[in-house]
Nucleic acid binder design. Sequence first.
DNA 1: GCGAGAATCTCGTTCAGCGAGATATTACGA
DNA 2: TCGTAATATCTCGCTGAACGAGATTCTCGC
Lengths: 151, 151
Amino acid sequence: MDDQSPAMGLVHLLRAVTVEFDTLGAEFAARHGLHPTDVRALIQLLDAARAGTRATPGWLGARLRLNSAGTTALVDRLERLGLVRRSRDTADRRRILLEVEEKAMDLGWTFFGSVIGEVVAAAEGFEEHELETVRRFLAAVLESTARARSV
Amino acid sequence: MDDQSPAMGLVHLLRAVTVEFDTLGAEFAARHGLHPTDVRALIQLLDAARAGTRATPGWLGARLRLNSAGTTALVDRLERLGLVRRSRDTADRRRILLEVEEKAMDLGWTFFGSVIGEVVAAAEGFEEHELETVRRFLAAVLESTARARSV
DNA sequence: GCGAGAATCTCGTTCAGCGAGATATTACGA
DNA sequence: TCGTAATATCTCGCTGAACGAGATTCTCGC
């Protein structure tokens, strides 16, 4: 019924890894009194901070597929938890900029710390050039899906 | 601040791919009037069916980290949508077996169809032995996380 | 300035998931 | 074999995340 395509195995594996990471994130969220959406938001905000992208509620809502009301509630939650700070954009005063607090960085680091352990463990027994192949493949998958969604 | 470990790049990529797949699932869910949890449940149930594992509400709830009330509501939804069928286990009459309907298979196939396209596109430009390396790596990651969670 | 337009927020509502506990069935020890 | 514990599922009441509609605030071109 399946396995016609040589990609099937990869699809199943990627999906399975996704499910595992997802559950890991949900457990991390529950342990810290967060909701899954909060974790997703944190990931996006930390990525944006690392990439130097200026994050606004509208941008965040679009990334998470939330409507404006839901986005406001989300930012309220994150601000109440001391994870982000709202500040007016001085250039375009209609905008609000979301700045991640130190606490958010620490939290993100805690989360990834546990994940890094897993990946490092998995990476043992692989040559560096093999890991490089994996990196190239994952980057290609990422680009494909991003293009397909055409955000 | 990061990139101390050679695994960091892989972690970031895996996380990014996870987020993309997740969003893809959420969009698929929204398009078919489902909730993200429903999609996660369907994936688990289809996997169980393929593996020959007998699925019960308790098992499903444990996989998705839902409590019993939430699980009941979930199964109610799936049953109302005609995706699964409840049936008493004749051996242990405390149990309820969840059987996926044809409709669920079709739905899953529709979803994976779109994902397969992405992965096939990404797999172009890779030798078969390289894809095999990727498979091995993903399987290792999966095993690591599964062991860490020690379900 | 003034209306068009964009970004954000408020209000009221729906429903997924939680905790507590009820119900039904099976397993086990005296 | 009877009572008690263990297991599996479901019911009830509640909280709060997210939605749709629309108000509000701010910017910019004419």
